[in-house]
Amino acid sequence: MNGVLLGFVTIGAVIAVGMLLAHLRVLDLTAQRTLTDVAFFVASPALMLTTLARADVGAVLTRNLLATVAGVVVAGGAYVVGARLVWRRDTGHTTVGALCSAYVNAGNLGIPIAAYVLGDAALVAPTLLLQLVVLQPVALAVLDADRHAGGTGWRRTLPRPLRNPLTVGSLLGVLLAVTGARLPDLVEAPLHLVGNLAVPAMLIAYGVALRLGPRPGRAGSVAELATTSVLKVLVQPLAAWFVADIVLGVRGHALLAIVVTSALPTAQNVFVHATRYQRATVLARDTILVTTVSAVPVIVGATLLLH
C-alpha cells in the first residue's frame, strides 16, 4: 500500500514545484512549451528506448494482455462515440480525448505501484509495451495526419509515424529487446541520463499549465471532463476485470495486476501530446488532475478486494 501513496505523493510534489515556479514567475507559458518540446523530442524517446530495450517482450504475448486491451477498447471506444455524436469533436480532439479515457500512467506511477503493491515491476510491462508500441504510435499518426489534413497525399502521410521521435525511440527499444542486442555503455549511459529528464519535465510543465491556464473545470465541457474521468478510473478497470475474471478465468495475483494497472490515472504524456499538437489541451490537463486524485481510492479498494 505504501507504493500507491509514494507514487501519487511523488507526482503531486513535482507538479507542485511547477506550480510554484509559475507563481513566482520563474517559468511562464513559453517555458512550459519549451519543457514540453524537450520532453517530446529528446527526453521521452531516450526513456522509451532504454526502458523497452530491457523489457520482456514475451510478457505481452499472454492472455492477460487481452483483458488489458478490452479495457482500453471499451473506455476509449465509449469516449469516441460520445465525442462524435454528442460533442461533435474533430479528429484531433477526439484522439486526445480517447487517450485521456484509456491511456494509463504505466511509467512513472505504474512502475512503483507494480513494484511495491504487486511485488514485481515487470507486471506493468505488458501495459507499457501495448501503449508504447501500439496505442501511442497510432494516436500520433492520427494527430500528425489531422494537423496536415488536406495538404499531403498518402506517400507523405504513411511515413510520418516513422519521423516521430517517440515512435522511433519505442520501435528501436523493441528491436533491441527482441534481438537481445545491447547498446554500448558509451551510448546507453547518456541516453539513460537524458531519459531521466522526461518525467520531471512533463510534470513541471503540467504544474505550470495548472497555475497559469484556466482553472480546472472552468474551461471546456464539464460533462466531457466527467466522462473521460469516469471512463478512465472506473469503466476501464471494470471492463478489464470482467474479461480477465469472467471470460478468461484469470485469478489471484495476475487478476489484481490487470485491474490495478487498468485503474491507473491518465498519463502525463497525454498532456504533452495535446500541447504539442494543440488539441484538447484543457481536457487533457483536467482529466490528468481528476484521475490522479480519484484513482487513489479505486486502486486501494481493488487491492483490498482482490489481494
Rank of each mutant, 00 (worst) to 15 (best):
L210T: 01
L191T: 04
G207C: 05
A244C: 10
L203C: 04
D245H: 15
L234W: 11
L212R: 04
R218C: 15
A205L: 02
A201V: 07
L210M: 08
N196L: 13
L238A: 15
G213T: 00
A209S: 14
A240R: 02
L203W: 00
P216S: 06
G249M: 13
M202K: 07
L231Y: 05
G217F: 02
G213H: 05
A240M: 07
V233G: 04
V247A: 13
L234F: 12
L193D: 06
G217Y: 01
V208E: 02
N196V: 13
A240K: 01
N196T: 15
A226H: 12
V194G: 08
W241R: 02
N196S: 15
L248Y: 04
M202Y: 09
P214K: 10
M202D: 09
S221P: 04
N196H: 14
L191G: 00
P184G: 06
E224Y: 07
A219H: 08
V230N: 05
A240Y: 03
L225Q: 08
L210P: 01
L234V: 14
D245W: 12
E188V: 12
P190R: 06
F242T: 12
M202Q: 13
L248I: 08
H192M: 15
L210N: 00
Y206Q: 10
A198V: 02
L197R: 03
V233A: 05
A226P: 07
P184A: 09
A239N: 07
L234P: 05
P237Y: 10
V222K: 14
A201Q: 06
L193N: 09
A219C: 12
L191A: 03
R211F: 12
A189E: 14
G217R: 01
D245G: 11
A223W: 15
D185F: 10
G213V: 00
A219V: 09
D185W: 07
Q236W: 07
Y206H: 11
V235N: 02
A226I: 12
F242I: 11
G220K: 00
P200Y: 04
V250I: 11
V243G: 00
T228C: 12
L210G: 00
A239K: 02
A201F: 10
V199I: 13
S221Q: 12
A205D: 01
P237T: 08
A198R: 00
V243M: 03
Q236V: 10
A209E: 10
A240W: 02
V247E: 09
Q236A: 11
P184D: 10
A244T: 05
L186P: 09
A209G: 09
G217Q: 01
A205R: 00
G220T: 02
V235E: 00
Y206I: 11
L212K: 03
L238N: 10
L234K: 07
L225N: 01
M202L: 15
H192R: 14
A226T: 13
E224I: 05
D245F: 13
T228A: 12
L231T: 05
L197Q: 05
A205K: 00
A226V: 13
L238G: 07
A205Q: 01
K232E: 10
R218I: 15
L234C: 10
V250H: 03
W241S: 02
V243A: 00
A189N: 14
A244Q: 01
G207T: 04
V250N: 01
L193V: 13
F242V: 13
A189F: 11
D245T: 14
S229D: 09
P184L: 08
A244I: 03
V230D: 10
A198F: 00
A219P: 10
